[in-house]
Structures are given as C-alpha cells and as structure tokens.
Simulated scan of single mutants.
Amino acid sequence: MILVTGATGNVGGQVVRQLHAAGESVRALARTPGKGAFPEGVEEVVGDLADPASLEGAFNGVDAVFLLWPLFSAETAPAVLKAAARHTERVVYLSSTGVDDTVLEQGDPINDFHARIERLLAESGLRWTAVRGGGFAANDLGWAEQVRQGATSIATPFPDAVRAVVHEGDLAAAAVHVLTAPDGGRRHDGRKYPLTGPERLSDAERIAIIGEAVGRPIRAEPMPLEQARAELIAGGLPQEYADGILGAVQEEFAAPGPSEEVRTIQALTGEAPRTYRQWVADHLADFRP
C-alpha cells in the first residue's frame, strides 16, 4: 500500500492515477472528503499535514509515502515524519530544483522550507528520495481564465524569462518509478533527482503556444512588478513568498541570456519527457470556453 499526499492536486493526482494504472494499492490523502475523483479501487482517507495527529490512520499499514508539502511552513513536518516513521520506512518527497545544497539558508522562503524538509528526512531514519521539480507547467493554468474569456494578450512580469517548465505527469512518473522500483527503491535512497521539461521557453513563447492551441494569436505583455506582487498576495500567497518568487525569477531567469540546465525524466526512467505543447494539449479543456 502506497499513501499519496496532495492527492487532489496536479502532481499528487497524477501519482495516484499512475500508481493505480501500474496495479499498486493506493491510499489517497485528502483534507476534504469527496473532493478528489479517484479511480475505482483507490482508498480515500481524510487527514491534514497541518494536524499530524490526524494522520495516524492514513499512515497505518502503508509500505511507502509520496509526500507533497502544500503548506507555507515546515512547522509540523517533524511531527509528520515521526508519525510516518511509526508505520513505514520509505518516503519520496516532491522538492524543488531551486534548493542549493551548498548553503544553510536558501535565497527565498519556498526553497527554504523544501531544504528544511529534506534535512528533516535525512535525520528521520526513514529511507527517502527527493524528486526536485523545476518550474511547474501547471502554474500556467493561472492564465486559463483570461484565455477562456477571449484575451488576445496576457500580462506577465517577466515575458522574456526562460524556463524549462515540467509536465506534472513527468514529476509523477519519476516518483512512481522510485516508489515501484523492483529492489524496493534502495538504489534511490538518499538521492535527489532534479527534473525539468525538455525545452527552454519564455513566458511569451508559452503564451503563444497556448494561443495556437485555442486558435487565435495571444501575445505577452509586461506586467509591473507591484501588480504581480499584489496579484500573488491576493491569490493567497504570504507576502514573503510573493517577494521570494518574483525575486528568484528576476535574479535567475529574467536577466539577459538566462540559462537553466535541462534535466529530464529520461535520465532517471528512460522515458521521453513531455513537451510544453503536450502539456497544453492535455489541458486544452482548461483554456477553452
């Protein structure tokens, strides 16, 4: 039995479906009962990573855990990992390529909590593997409502920032590969696998690809940083997270000649990575009225 946290989200939902398709017994953790449309045979359990005491039943009897951390703080992570260790010995954690192993404090709060959870895993006695995701293609769903309403331009703070965004299906496939490895995943113990998409594309190029898919030209236009910051905060991000995201993109990807090393799922699993056009095709219903 494999427990999947974040099971109602983009990556977690893919992990659930891919494990189920592979014939594994899957238990899906959800904070709200009935929220996820899980395949028949998947066991749904209710629990909250913010409330470690609610997780004992979810962890009971599982062989491994896919851990996705949806909170803005790692405050409850020590108790969550202790609860997990009482029932299982393996965790595959969805982390971030932005984590810098050479420093104690990361440059922004998001990578800081990812680094902290990785350290806690290393100290927990659990067998663990980190799947470090680059920029998520699914974040581009933030443009979907404007596209559905017929927009011919999308404002973004860094239209020329280039990233190799990764399909959530590839992140899930990497995690499933580790979780279902024939040796019990031991060759993956303590490993940290960075994963990106197969191609470097700017915001403007990705917006144009979405436009091609829906059948009308859509261009990118610059958004003032203060407006971008306000929109992130209005969407529920704490102020320091909004500042961290914008600062990291500005520093790493928006400078002239930005570069991001492409590291795809193929290096880990041998499977061809999904392109951004494939991601758009998979989400076309989200962009159409």
Rank of each mutant, 00 (worst) to 15 (best):
I2S: 07
V4K: 00
G6C: 14
G6P: 09
A7E: 13
T8R: 10
G9I: 04
G9D: 04
N10F: 05
V11P: 00
R17M: 03
Q18F: 02
L19K: 07
E24C: 09
E24V: 08
S25W: 01
V26G: 01
R27V: 14
R31V: 12
K35S: 14
F38M: 07
E40H: 11
E40R: 14
E40Y: 04
E40A: 15
G41Y: 05
E44H: 06
E44D: 05
V46Q: 13
G47L: 10
G47S: 06
S54L: 03
L55D: 03
E56Y: 03
N60L: 12
G61R: 03
V62Y: 13
D63N: 13
A64R: 02
V65W: 01
F66N: 02
P70W: 10
A74P: 03
A79P: 01
K82P: 00
K82M: 10
A84P: 02
R90G: 01
V91Q: 00
V91P: 00
L94E: 00
V103D: 02
L104W: 01
L104K: 07
E105V: 15
Q106M: 12
Q106G: 04
D112S: 15
D112I: 04
L120K: 07
A122V: 04
E123H: 13
G125N: 06
L126M: 06
L126E: 03
T129H: 04
V131P: 00
V131D: 00
A137M: 09
A138W: 05
L141W: 08
G142F: 10
W143R: 09
A144I: 02
Q146D: 14
A151I: 06
T152C: 07
S153Q: 13
I154S: 01
I154C: 01
I154V: 10
A155E: 12
T156N: 13
T156D: 09
V162C: 05
R163V: 15
V165D: 08
H167S: 04
D170A: 03
A172P: 01
A172Q: 02
A173S: 12
H177G: 04
V178Q: 03
L179V: 06
L179S: 02
A181N: 12
A181K: 09
G184R: 09
G185K: 04
H188D: 11
D189I: 12
G197M: 04
R200Y: 06
D203V: 06
D203G: 03
E205D: 10
A208K: 07
E212L: 13
A213I: 05
R216T: 11
I218A: 04
R219L: 14
R219F: 06
A220W: 02
E221P: 00
E221S: 11
P222H: 15
P222D: 15
P224L: 13
L225A: 13
A230K: 12
L232D: 06
I233Q: 12
A234F: 08
G236R: 05
E240R: 11
Y241L: 05
G244P: 05
L246S: 13
L246K: 10
G247H: 02
A254K: 08
P258L: 15
P258G: 11
E260K: 08
T264G: 13
A267I: 08
T269V: 10
E271P: 00
P273A: 14
R274Y: 09
R277H: 10
A281T: 12
